[in-house]
C-alpha cells in the first residue's frame, strides 16, 4: 500500500499547486475580475464528469461481455464520483453565470447539457437502489449506463441547435482571452482534478471490494449456521 500513500501525497501536492496557480499566480480577468477564477474549477469538474461517465460506459460494456463483478464495481464507483464532479460543474457554472451574466441560471448550451447529464446519472444511481439482486442490478444499470452515454452527444447537439433558434438574452460573457498564466492554471486544475478522480476511484473500489467480501462472509456464515440446525 506504500504506492497508494505516495499517490495520495502526489494528488494533495498537485491540488495545492493548482490552487496556488488559480488563486495567486493567474491574473484576474479584465472584464470579470476575481470571479473569473471559478472558471478553473468549473472546467476541471465538468471535464472530470465527462471522463467519469466515459469510464462508466466502458465498464458497462465490459460487464455485459465478461460478467465479472469487478466491472460493475468500477461502473458504480465512476458513476458516484462522476455525479459529484458534474454537480460541482453545474453549481460552479451557476455561480459563474450569476457574476458573468447577472442571473443564477442561463439556458446556455453547455450549462444545460451538463444539467441533463447530471439528471441522467442521478437517475442511474436511483435505478441501482431499486434492484436487490446484485447480478440483475449490475446488468440493468449497465444497460442504462450504455443508453445514457449514447444519448450524451445527441443531447449536446440538440441543445446547441435548440439554443441557436432562440434569441440569446445574455451573450456569453465576452470571449475569454486566456493569457499564458491562465492557460497554465487551467491545465494544472484539469490535471490535478483528474488525479483526484483516480484517487477517489481507487478508494471507492477498495471499499466496494470490502463490501463484497463482507457480504460473502455473511452468506457463508448464514449457510454454515443454518446447516447446524
Amino acid at each position: 500500500m506504500r504506492w497508494r500513500t505516495a499517490f495520495t501525497w502526489l494528488v494533495f501536492l498537485s491540488v495545492e499547486i493548482s490552487l496556488f496557480l488559480a488563486f495567486l499566480y493567474a491574473p484576474p480577468d479584465v472584464v470579470l475580475g476575481e470571479t473569473q477564477r471559478i472558471f478553473y474549477f468549473h472546467v476541471a469538474s465538468a471535464w472530470n464528469g465527462l471522463l467519469a461517465f466515459t469510464v462508466v460506459f466502458v465498464a458497462a460494456v465490459a460487464y455485459l461481455m465478461k460478467r465479472t463483478p469487478e466491472w460493475d464495481r468500477l461502473a458504480l464507483a465512476s458513476t458516484e464520483i462522476g455525479v459529484v464532479f458534474i454537480t460541482m460543474g453545474v453549481v460552479t457554472g451557476s455561480i459563474w453565470a450569476r457574476f458573468a451574466w447577472g442571473v443564477w441560471w442561463e439556458w446556455e448550451p453547455r450549462l444545460t447539457s451538463s444539467f441533463v447529464l447530471w439528471l441522467m446519472y442521478v437517475t442511474l444511481l436511483v435505478l441501482r437502489n431499486l434492484v436487490e439482486d446484485p447480478d440483475r442490478r449490475a446488468r440493468l444499470s449497465a444497460v442504462f449506463g450504455i443508453v445514457a452515454f449514447v444519448d450524451v452527444p445527441v443531447v449536446f447537439m440538440s441543445i446547441r441547435w435548440w439554443r441557436s433558434v432562440h434569441p440569446v438574452v445574455v451573450e456569453a460573457g465576452g470571449k475569454l482571452n486566456l493569457e499564458p498564466p491562465m492557460v497554465l492554471a487551467l491545465v494544472a486544475s484539469v490535471i490535478s482534478f483528474t488525479l483526484l478522480y483516480l484517487l477517489l476511484l481507487m478508494e471507492r473500489l477498495t471499499i466496494s471490494k470490502l463490501e463484497a467480501d463482507l457480504a460473502d462472509i455473511k452468506r457463508t456464515w448464514k449457510e454454515r449456521t443454518s446447516g447446524v440446525e
Binding site: V116, T123, V126, L127, A148, D151, V154, V155, S158
Partner: peptide, 10 residues
C-alpha cells in the same frame, strides 16, 4: 418516466 425523460430530452 423517471428513467425515460432525461434520455428523451433530444
Amino acid at each position: 418516466p423517471v428513467l425515460a425523460f432525461p434520455v428523451l430530452i433530444p
